[in-house]
């Protein structure tokens, strides 16, 4: 009798113990895309792999700040989503590690990102920079629709253009770098200063101008086209313009944090996020970015990167800290406080 009780207790103890060991497969994700997209990714990943995922959404800046602060003892395993620059910075600071994922099916801009960073970050989606205008407001004010970057200099748009501040927004920095690559540095800054005469506010956040344009707070916004598509498809009177001179783009990325505690699961996540089946689902939550896997299906509403005149964006140069600091301090001097029309 006694023996049996003892045996029972031992078995129970073993069961509890083993449970504790096997339930341990988990993954901590910081997600810099939209909440609903993050939720979708987590649900799909959990279903497919059985790994328990804890996810928190943070903007790219916040995520980078946290990864930096936690570098000695990271609590996050994977950083998914968000524009590629901060991912590249994290890679160059040694905050992330190579995932060793297979990139054969990926599109060129995605592989490019991986190559620049020694495989520490991989592109998962791309989105082009563009213009949007509020069609109702524009007709009410009898303004012509802009078609090119240079049109924005026109005095008729005085106080009607909104764009983010590149010091705080990655979107706006992409715009700044695009201008420099399109027009050359000196002309770019004089153009930006001229457009600046019509700018009513340099917002902190990159997606704010398009939202303001959607609600009619401003007539014209500069930002990422997929954000505009999402606003337009949810009903706002936004018309999206791919500027005639050509435009730059961002690449959303995924990175595994250096010293990640759940490295295997993290690798699974990277694999999962590049899978065509996964990428094709993004449209379910209104993410109109172009997926990086060539086999993924692209939503019809997505801006077709083939028809847009895309520049050959130099992520290595314009993502480097030196170039960045130089361009931003020049922006502060030449553009920020330019007189208004």
């Amino acid at each position: 009798m006694k023996k049996r009780t003892a045996l029972g207790i031992t078995l129970f103890g073993l069961a509890v113990h083993s449970q504790a060991v096997f339930a341990a497969e988990e993954l901590n994700v910081v997600c810099s895309a939209e909440q609903s997209w993050c939720d979708l990714m987590v649900a799909g990943f959990e279903e497919q792999t059985g790994v328990e995922v804890a996810m928190v959404r943070k903007s790219t800046g916040e995520a980078l700040a946290q990864v930096r602060a936690e570098s000695k003892n990271p609590k996050i395993d994977v950083w998914w989503g968000g524009t590629g620059d901060p991912h590249l910075i994290a890679a160059s600071e040694g905050l992330t590690q190579a995932s060793g994922v297979d990139t054969t099916d990926l599109l060129g801009w995605s592989v490019n990102l991986s190559n620049i960073s020694d495989g520490k970050t991989v592109g998962i989606y791309a989105g082009a920079l563009g213009l949007a205008y509020n069609s109702e407001l524009l007709s009410e004010k009898n303004m012509k629709a802009p078609a090119c970057w240079k049109d924005l200099v026109d005095v008729q748009y005085a106080g009607e253009i909104q764009v983010a501040n590149p010091n705080s927004s990655g979107t706006a920095y992409t715009e700044l770098a695009t201008f420099v690559q399109l027009f050359g540095e000196d002309e770019a800054f004089s153009l930006l200063a001229d457009i600046g005469k019509n700018v009513n506010q340099y917002t902190k956040s990159g997606s704010a101008p398009s939202k303001a344009a959607g609600r009619g707070e401003t007539a014209i916004s500069i930002g990422f086209m997929h954000d505009m598509v999402k606003l337009a498809s949810s009903g706002f009177p936004l018309v999206i313009v791919a500027p005639c001179e050509g435009t730059g783009y961002e690449v959303g990325a995924v990175s595994i944090i250096d010293k990640a505690k759940n490295l295997e699961s993290a690798k699974k996540w990277v694999q999962y996020s590049l899978d065509p089946a996964t990428q094709s689902r993004s449209v379910e939550v209104g993410a109109y970015q172009v997926p990086s896997n060539s086999k993924s299906t692209v939503a019809p509403e997505s801006p077709d990167l083939a028809t847009i005149k895309l520049i050959d964006y130099d992520f290595a140069t314009y993502g480097s800290t030196d170039t960045r600091e130089r361009l931003l301090s020049r922006w502060d001097a030449d553009v920020k406080n330019a007189p208004k029309n």
């Binding site: 903007s59 800046g61 916040e62 980078l64 700040a65 930096r68 620059d85 590149p166 010091n167 705080s168 927004s169 990655g170 706006a172 920095y173 902190k204 960045r324 600091e325 931003l328």
Partner: peptide
């Protein structure tokens, strides 16, 4: 307060 926030999370993160 916002300057501090963007000094940390902005495009030029400068703690």
């Amino acid at each position: 307060s916002t300057e501090i926030y963007f000094a940390i999370v902005g495009a030029v993160a400068d703690t």
